[in-house]
């Protein structure tokens, strides 16, 4: 099928197999290998990208459903040569080791902070009907869809906490 894909504000007219996931299209067709394949089953978060500003798992999204969406990958987070504050924060706080979950952590935290700014609660928000307060417990819960096997969680939470303030 022919699809017009908009990624990091670049237009890509491409032909895809209907079976292809957004993750595979990004990685295998568009050479945007920042989004990672850690499980291919929506269980690790390494493939997280932003679709119309919302964080999603690109391994569970079929590319053919994406042709009127705006997709942002880790490659599109920086402002030219200036890293996104979260990217700089991840380096400063050593919020990664092997780096494989990192693009997903970054896209997820960008989306998560936007959800937070919009007043979305989480399951640890004491009163689900009230506006949440950004603390470490909230960050930890909201980032739990992004696994990190190197065990950088404490540094990830610190980096996001700093950027979120």
């Amino acid at each position: 099928m022919d699809v017009q894909l908009s990624v990091n504000q670049d237009q890509h007219p491409i032909t895809v197999d209907t079976r292809e996931t957004l993750l595979d299209t990004l990685r295998e067709q568009l050479d945007l290998t920042g989004a990672k394949k850690g499980c291919d089953h929506g269980q690790c978060g390494a493939c997280t990208v932003l679709v119309d500003g919302r964080r999603v798992k690109s391994c569970l999204a079929l590319t053919v459903t994406m042709d009127d969406r705006e997709i942002t990958t880790v490659e599109g987070l920086a402002d030219g040569d200036t890293p996104h504050p979260l990217q700089a924060g991840f380096i400063e706080h050593d919020a990664f080791q092997c780096g494989y979950c990192t693009p997903g952590q970054l896209c997820s935290s960008v989306g998560m902070l936007a959800e937070f700014a919009a007043g979305w609660p989480s399951v640890v928000t004491p009163d689900v009907s009230a506006a949440p307060h950004l603390d470490e417990g909230e960050i930890r819960e909201r980032m739990s869809g992004n696994l990190c096997r190197c065990g950088a969680y404490v540094n990830i939470v610190a980096a996001i906490g700093q950027a979120g303030r």
Binding site: R55, K57, L60, G145
Partner: peptide, 8 residues
């Protein structure tokens, strides 16, 4: 699930 999956 996770925030990402809830968004989908």
């Amino acid at each position: 699930a996770s925030g990402q999956i809830r968004n989908m």
